[in-house]
Amino acid sequence: MITVKNLKKSFGELTAVDDVSFSINKGEVFGLLGPNGAGKTTTINIIVGLLKPDSGLVEIDGNSDPTKSSVRTRIGNAPQTLALYDMLSGRENLEFFGKLYGLSGSKLKERVDWALDFGRLTDRQKDRVGTYSGGMKRRLNMAGAVIHDPPVILFDEPTVGVDPQSRNMIFDSIEDLKAQGRTIVYTTHYMEEAERLCDEVAIIDHGKILDLGTVRDLTKQYGGPALIEAEYESLPDDISGLPGEFEGNTVRIETEKPMEDLAKLTRNGHTLRQLRIDQPDLETVFLNITGRSLRD
């Protein structure tokens, strides 16, 4: 559905996108995971035709010119900046965006109603956007991207600065779109979002894709062992057969098979007062690949 080959883009001395390549199948949610300034938004802007790459190729459904009207109607983009008119109501914003994509009459009304429902904004549709909360504006921003029913949708950091309730609504909305078979590109620097939503993730930093794959594959490859930290009610008489390193009543285990080792700790009826298991995640993956945290 989307193919990106050897994409390069520089702004003066700064190389924003450096030989980026990936492909996304129809109905897949593809995550671009990286810290701020990693090149995610530049990559998105090249895909949708807002920026011309210095070199490389972008194909959407086999078409290499995203600025063509026929291609643009197949793409929806929710930019990171809230692209809304504060003086208009939520409904008026959506009607305006819908008309720009050629919608009119009953079709327009139907799509606006759908988009308002998608953004969970039906009850505030007549209020001016200037009175909306940050989360509501984010949801309307997303609704504006899907008003024309595009098969390809790009969400650029859609949860920046939103409250937990709105974040969950956004996740639900994206999962709805995924269930409808849309192809989605999702940029974020939040691990949990990529883990929850994305079928495949590309780790990007300094304009380069460091690796890509499923969350499971990446954590398996770069995540390292899980960490178990357990505290016994009372120390077992014989700890020689138990895994890990003891310090008082507490044992710490780095393991590839956390469930097996946990079973060993409690095998002889010993009870644990506290238990913590840290599974490797994309944060760890990013740390292990780049040597720094995502939020650095």
């Binding site: 949708v48 035709g49 807002l50 643009r72 793409i75 983009n77 930019p79 900046t81 809230l82 692209a83 809304l84 008119y85 504060d86 965006f97 720009l100 994509y101 504006g144």
Partner: peptide, 10 residues
Amino acid sequence: AGTFLRLRLA
């Protein structure tokens, strides 16, 4: 405000 971006995407 970023709305010009959306206009250009249309």
